[in-house]
Design a protein around this nucleic acid. Structure first.
Lengths: 229, 229
DNA sequence: ACTCACAAAGTGACTAAATCACTTAGCCAT
DNA sequence: ATGGCTAAGTGATTTAGTCACTTTGTGAGT
């Protein structure tokens, strides 16, 4: 837990990642833009392609770049993130899901209160969209949890959004499992709508309470479910 | 922001990282244990070392493994993390520091309240240690911020500790800058001690209020400081 | 018996030069 | 215009080898 300071001398590939990030940032490249090819980078830094690829793989692991076979390498979605979801996260158990909900139970009510205060009109729009989409999906990606990310986005602080997005980036199968347990024909939807109403009315106390109750309901549902893995 | 689902077919190095994680987890290896050498892994999976190294670099980027030149590759400290600090985080500005403090201002009071309720005797010990160490350092690593991680640890939820540790893993230079601004001869220390007292007394409301005030003080100090980068 | 220097083995770091697989864009024939 | 083919560019992976660093154990000297 100490995250001590015994730093090793930075390897060539370490310095390379920094240089590549420099190319991206100094070049003003945004998410989706293409970066120079591996061969091009190898020539530019006078090293070989396997070494370049090692550096790029490190950036890929954190979502800073994305590979598209045959096409090129592109700036990834989390290039400017401060906190990330671990892409190599440990397997999920019922206990770890309960731990996740408990953490959200601490953080999200406070976030909801802040969002109620700071929300802007466009946040309300996106929240409405997230709430209504939550009823639509026949089996598509889990939009329901996206609601909670949008709720955090309404706080106006991108870091809070990052934190919630990282916590909620559970594997899709487990999300569906939770929803199957909890979402008995629109209960999720109703509670989300109530929260949006509180945020719209800028009633921080209410938004906080409703969010806490909502997550507490989910926690209880999961808690009473049978072990699944 | 959409984190959409356009998943590409997993590459060889993707499958490799999963296999290596399998070796670590199925083997019951813990942080600090050695994993098979790159040559050994190459032989075992019937592939070549550059490919193995790419997979290992991805794991290195998320702190799942660590390289030690000439010695071997070892299981890293964040192998079981759910959320991570971005090792390739963007450069820090005064605005980004204020954004960070604002996020903590939302999250940490709620965490402090939870910690006041759930704290166990060993948490109080570690909190005391963090508080007293905060006065010691002549220039060493920033123990002061470690206090906030320990405060989150006292909640009993490792995820909350991970979130705070990720948020606080600012570069050392910036930490010193903040401390230089704020810590006028022990003010930090006094406020930390007051928070510990509230946690010890299991007074959740007080712990929450003191934490909010503490961070608000820091925020104001940073806000009134001159631009620095 | 103890210590220290040094050699050897194991490991990571990196190079060099290819080949294969995939994507994209342009051209051509329809 | 449309469809299919071709060629260039790119990522994916291989093969074979060299260099640098760490650890360990051995053996000489004390």
């Amino acid at each position: 837990m100490s995250y001590s300071a015994a730093e090793l001398p930075p390897s060539l590939s370490d310095r390379l990642t920094e240089s590549i990030l420099g190319i991206i940032r100094d070049g003003g490249l945004r998410t989706g833009d293409a970066i120079p090819s591996a061969r091009e980078l190898a020539k530019r830094f006078a090293i070989t392609t396997p070494t370049v690829r090692e550096a790029l793989r490190k950036l890929e692991a954190t979502g800073a770049v994305e590979f598209r076979h045959g096409s090129g390498t592109y700036v990834g979605p989390t290039i400017n993130n401060v906190v990330l979801a671990n892409p190599h996260r440990p397997p999920i158990t019922k206990d770890s899901v309960l731990q996740l909900i408990s953490a959200r139970l601490v953080i999200e009510p406070a976030v909801a209160a802040q969002s109620a205060i700071a929300r802007r009109p466009e946040n309300l729009e996106r929240l409405e969209a997230a709430v209504t989409n939550a009823l639509v999906p026949p089996g598509g990606p889990a939009f329901a949890l996206n609601f909670h990310v949008e709720l955090a986005a309404a706080s106006g602080n991108p870091l809070l959004q990052e934190v919630l997005a990282s916590l909620l980036k559970v594997r899709v199968r487990e999300q569906q499992q939770i929803r199957a347990l909890y979402d008995n024909r629109g209960r999720d939807h109703e509670e989300h709508q109530a929260i949006v109403a509180a945020v719209r009315a800028q009633d921080a106390g209410l938004a906080e309470r409703l969010t806490r109750e909502h997550l507490d309901n989910i926690r209880r549902t999961v808690e009473s479910a049978p072990e699944w893995s």
